[in-house]
Amino acid sequence: MSAITLNNITKTYNKGAVLAVDDISFSVEKGELFGLIGPDGAGKTSIFRILTTLLLPDKGSATVVGNDVVKDFHKIRGIVGYMPGRFSLYQDLTVEENLNFFATVFGTTVKENYDQIKDIYVMLEPFKDRRAGKLSGGMKQKLALCCALIHKPEVLFLDEPTTGVDVVSRKEFWEMLARLKAQGITIMVSTSYMDEATLCDRIALILGGKILSLATPEETIKAYPEKLYAVKSSNMHKLLKDIRTNDEILNCYAAGEYIHLSLKNATKENENSLTKFLAEKGESDLVFKETTPTVEDCFIRLLGNTDGNSN
């Protein structure tokens, strides 16, 4: 049985003026770590709020562990954990008080389910008497995860848990998720960091309320339609400008240390004529090679097929 199903879910705001979720259907299997990957405004939070029964869809149906999000909302609330994008714990309660509060609301105790949160809580323990509002970003994030886990949920919904968090804390957070997944918990997580996508079992790339692609990270990358090249030289900004003046270029943009580009027609001759063109433009220390696309490359490619939603 699927842990989560969505069938033709649509959600609008402002009396239909804003289309947030546009006829979306997919399912998430039990024990899967499923990623919703997309920028702010893509519709990720609306999907989370519909699945956690906090928002009614305009159209379509959805289930969580076999329960309908409209009819069985009460049952769903008892078996899911939800970490909203905005910090939503009680700022003037301490770490310990917040945790006790959430345990009590779900009819359990911290003691009874301590093993569920132990790994994460040990990092918070030195601050257990500190008010939640006075915690740092990384610590707030850990406390919110503990509060979402304290009733041993079957499904965990995490809405942008790593936004604004530095790389080291982000890595630690994903290590925590891997351990939760190993315990059999189904996890649906959203992020705007493309590099986190590869840590999911399957990813949905989402923009403007629509799913652009849904597959494993490996399949997503494999589906990239063109040959992709990586180029660098001693003056990257000049290089990017020069490349843009070449008619054979389909797409090009800065990608970390390299510029990534694809050709309208990726033949050996065209590769050679491009390197010759760049040499004539006076690029020094030129490196030109074929490269494997990342999820970010795939996303940019799919954005190119939409009508400029990202401007």
Binding site: G38, P39, D40, A42, T163, G164, S192, M194, L207, Y253, A254, E296, F299, I300, L303, G304, S310, N311
Partner: peptide, 10 residues
């Protein structure tokens, strides 16, 4: 923060 990769490049 939070914008799509294409906009980030722009």
């Amino acid at each position: 923060g939070g914008v799509d990769p294409s906009t980030r490049k722009q």
